[in-house]
Lab assay of single mutants.
Amino acid sequence: MTEYKLVVVGAGGVGKSALTIQLIQNHFVDEYDPTIEDSYRKQVVIDGETCLLDILDTAGQEEYSAMRDQYMRTGEGFLCVFAINNTKSFEDIHHYREQIKRVKDSEDVPMVLVGNKCDLPSRTVDTKQAQDLARSYGIPFIETSAKTRQGVDDAFYTLVREIRKHKEKMSKDGKKKKKKSKTKCVIM
């Protein structure tokens, strides 16, 4: 069974824990209790493949930012979460993405942009803004509501699919490099 290491990042209060708990335990946590770091595991079937999701729910508070490099190193894919009623959390996505790329030393890291709290009427981040940002990053965008469960499975499952595509691409690139290195030079 394939294991996928997913990391949920975003500013404090955007609903990272609520999304994760909704996926794992099928219930909505409405009281806000700032996370330092929590880890969850769940076995699911995605596109006919049974897999184990190892999900790291991270601290959004700035005082825990020193811990970010460590979990970013171990993560295979990242859910970059903002709240649709919090423009600052949307603007912060850029910083999370840049930090992930720096730590992973790669421009090509599996990510999904997630606009959470889409059940709320007080939207300050337009869907088109988020779609445009995701398009500019070359990553999928999904709106979710941890409260109603809308888009929750889709967000995590899409990230797994992005990781699969990335692994497939990397193995193809690896095979191309191996083929090239088999060419021999004969000096007579």
Score class of each variant (00 low, 15 high):
residue 114 V to N: 00
residue 74 T to I: 09
residue 124 T to L: 09
residue 80 C to K: 01
residue 101 K to W: 05
residue 125 V to H: 10
residue 91 E to C: 02
residue 126 D to E: 09
residue 68 R to N: 05
residue 107 E to Y: 10
residue 74 T to Q: 10
residue 109 V to T: 05
residue 108 D to Q: 07
residue 116 N to T: 15
residue 71 Y to L: 04
residue 117 K to Q: 12
residue 124 T to I: 08
residue 108 D to F: 09
residue 125 V to S: 11
residue 123 R to N: 14
residue 104 K to F: 08
residue 64 Y to V: 03
residue 115 G to Q: 05
residue 107 E to S: 08
residue 125 V to I: 10
residue 69 D to H: 10
residue 100 I to W: 04
residue 113 L to N: 01
residue 110 P to V: 03
residue 122 S to E: 13
residue 120 L to V: 15
residue 108 D to L: 04
residue 117 K to L: 15
residue 68 R to S: 12
residue 102 R to H: 06
residue 112 V to F: 03
residue 65 S to R: 06
residue 126 D to I: 07
residue 81 V to P: 03
residue 97 R to V: 15
residue 121 P to M: 12
residue 80 C to S: 03
residue 120 L to W: 11
residue 83 A to K: 05
residue 114 V to G: 01
residue 69 D to L: 02
residue 106 S to C: 13
residue 77 G to A: 14
residue 84 I to G: 15
residue 86 N to I: 02
residue 115 G to A: 14
residue 104 K to S: 13
residue 106 S to L: 13
residue 111 M to R: 00
residue 66 A to P: 08
residue 109 V to L: 04
residue 68 R to I: 03
residue 109 V to M: 04
residue 104 K to P: 04
residue 86 N to A: 04
residue 96 Y to A: 04
residue 65 S to D: 06
residue 113 L to F: 13
residue 101 K to A: 12
residue 118 C to V: 11
residue 110 P to C: 03
residue 126 D to G: 09
residue 84 I to H: 15
residue 119 D to V: 02
residue 124 T to P: 10
residue 72 M to L: 06
residue 122 S to I: 08
residue 109 V to D: 01
residue 84 I to R: 12
residue 107 E to N: 06
residue 116 N to H: 14
residue 87 T to R: 10
residue 83 A to T: 12
residue 124 T to D: 14
residue 111 M to F: 11
residue 72 M to T: 07
residue 88 K to C: 10
residue 65 S to C: 06
residue 101 K to Y: 04
residue 111 M to S: 01
residue 66 A to E: 08
residue 66 A to S: 13
residue 104 K to R: 15
residue 78 F to C: 02
residue 102 R to V: 05
residue 115 G to L: 13
residue 65 S to Y: 07
residue 70 Q to C: 06
residue 112 V to S: 01
residue 64 Y to L: 05
residue 82 F to A: 14
residue 90 F to D: 02
residue 121 P to F: 12
residue 76 E to A: 12
residue 83 A to G: 15
residue 65 S to V: 07
residue 118 C to R: 06
residue 69 D to I: 01
residue 113 L to V: 11
residue 64 Y to P: 03
residue 102 R to G: 09
residue 107 E to D: 10
residue 76 E to D: 15
residue 64 Y to T: 03
residue 76 E to C: 14
residue 122 S to H: 11
residue 65 S to L: 06
residue 78 F to T: 01
residue 109 V to R: 03
residue 110 P to S: 03
residue 102 R to F: 06
residue 121 P to Q: 09
residue 78 F to Q: 00
residue 119 D to N: 06
residue 79 L to A: 04
residue 126 D to T: 09
residue 84 I to W: 14
residue 83 A to I: 01
residue 115 G to C: 10
residue 103 V to L: 12
residue 110 P to M: 02
residue 96 Y to V: 13
residue 126 D to A: 08
residue 84 I to Q: 15
residue 111 M to Y: 02
residue 104 K to V: 07
residue 106 S to H: 12
residue 122 S to M: 09
residue 117 K to S: 13
residue 114 V to W: 00
residue 70 Q to S: 14
residue 82 F to N: 03
residue 98 E to C: 04
residue 70 Q to T: 09
residue 121 P to C: 09
residue 100 I to K: 01
residue 119 D to F: 03
residue 119 D to Y: 02
residue 70 Q to I: 04
residue 118 C to S: 11
residue 109 V to G: 02
residue 121 P to N: 12
residue 105 D to S: 09
residue 112 V to M: 04
residue 110 P to A: 03
residue 80 C to Q: 03
residue 110 P to D: 02
residue 123 R to P: 12
residue 103 V to W: 14
residue 122 S to A: 11
residue 83 A to S: 14
residue 75 G to P: 05
residue 113 L to H: 02
residue 72 M to K: 07
residue 74 T to F: 05
residue 118 C to W: 09
residue 86 N to G: 13
residue 108 D to T: 04
residue 82 F to E: 02
residue 69 D to T: 08
residue 117 K to H: 15
residue 64 Y to A: 03
residue 108 D to E: 10
residue 109 V to S: 03
residue 76 E to W: 14
residue 105 D to T: 03
residue 113 L to G: 01
residue 65 S to I: 05
residue 110 P to N: 02
residue 67 M to V: 06
residue 71 Y to N: 13
residue 76 E to V: 15
residue 64 Y to D: 04
residue 67 M to F: 05
residue 115 G to S: 09
residue 69 D to Y: 04
residue 69 D to P: 08
residue 120 L to G: 12
residue 118 C to H: 07
residue 109 V to A: 04
residue 76 E to H: 13
residue 122 S to Q: 13
residue 71 Y to D: 12
residue 123 R to I: 09
residue 118 C to M: 11
residue 102 R to S: 10
residue 64 Y to R: 04
residue 123 R to T: 14
residue 79 L to I: 14
residue 114 V to D: 00
residue 71 Y to T: 13
residue 78 F to S: 01
residue 125 V to G: 13
residue 66 A to V: 10
residue 77 G to F: 13
residue 111 M to N: 00
residue 123 R to W: 08
residue 106 S to F: 12
residue 80 C to Y: 09
residue 112 V to W: 01
residue 101 K to P: 02
residue 81 V to H: 03
residue 83 A to H: 07
residue 82 F to R: 00
residue 98 E to D: 06
residue 81 V to W: 00
residue 69 D to V: 01
residue 115 G to M: 12
residue 72 M to W: 07
residue 66 A to R: 05
residue 64 Y to I: 02
residue 84 I to E: 15
residue 124 T to K: 10
residue 88 K to E: 13
residue 73 R to L: 08
residue 66 A to M: 10
residue 76 E to K: 04
residue 105 D to C: 09
residue 115 G to W: 07
residue 66 A to L: 09
residue 67 M to L: 09
residue 110 P to K: 02
residue 107 E to A: 12
residue 123 R to C: 13
residue 72 M to Q: 07
residue 71 Y to A: 15
